[in-house]
Amino acid sequence: MERLLEVKDLEVSFKTYAGEVKAVRGVSFHVDRGETVAVVGESGCGKSVTMQAIMRLIPMPPGVIKNGTIVFDGKDITKLSEKEMEHVRGSEISMVFQDPMTSLNPTMKVGAQIAEGLIKHQKMHPKQAREKAIEMLKMVGIPNAEKRVDQYPHEFSGGMRQRAMIAIALACNPKLLIADEPTTALDVTIQAQILDLMRDLQKKLNTAIIIITHNLGVVANLAERVLVMYAGKIIERGSLDDIFYNPRHPYTWGLLMSVPTPDLDKSKRLASIDGTPPDLFAPPVGCAFAARCEYAMKICYERYPEDFPVSDGHSAACWLLHPMAPKVKPPIGKGVTL
């Protein structure tokens, strides 16, 4: 498959009065055309900042991209001028946010918000753009599109607003859609509708999707590949089945085990990861997860582990995968002993 996005050694920091927060500490990954990649991790692990860097939406100052390249469709985004970037943002990469109420403009009709990008980027005639807006609303499953196009966001329900956001994001037929917790604010039945919609549209338009979420159910439902982030680094990556059935990093084990599976009964305790993520003002020298990891060895505190390959496309940054490390049986998954 053809590469669409390639992020290499990305480092992002925020300068605050208390010091420098190293939010993203050397992240590399790629996205191919038309595929769905999920980024999972806890709040503060740097997943949203990574996406903001791709969109060049990091407020600078206080933010700084300290290192790294972001190559999208053959061009390095970090080197584009603001004007060129505006074009990329509207028509090549677009974004759907968590909260559809605050990300829509409350003073603009929904139709106008969809048409805005079309008029600006595709130089469409306003009348034509309006027609296209109606078409988009129909495509995302909003009934009475002809009437809804002239309504304001407050007249829409939560689920419909998120549909409208998706319509705006996809209006210019972008190559990449970044969805940052697109269903977190929605109820489960509405969430199921939105996930279905995203899958359908992806098939139709062949858009690549990066979905950020902490809901592992959503990941299992939508993603083809998964990146697990912790404290500003990608600690494990692999296909959906690699991550769920043969996870190799203790943090991934912890994440997978802390959600109740349908057959878990009350007599058993949920596995929880004790402690909290490290302070990113002064991230630890070694593995950032070591302090919470029950398998931690001496080296884990001293040196950051390299990315050990497990199989094609599947790798994890954990010293347990080193040939000299003791063999540990993963508490989860169908995997073999390490």
């Binding site: 419909m160 969430q191 279905d196 769920f244």
Partner: peptide, 26 residues
């Protein structure tokens, strides 16, 4: 419908599952 709408953190279950999709909002 509510039960079928919950995404289960297990890829195989998700691939096989038939969802009952509810139309519209509450």
């Amino acid at each position: 419908a509510l039960l079928s709408a919950i995404p289960i953190p297990d890829p195989e279950t998700e691939r096989k599952k038939k969802r009952i999709l509810l139309e519209g909002d509450v």
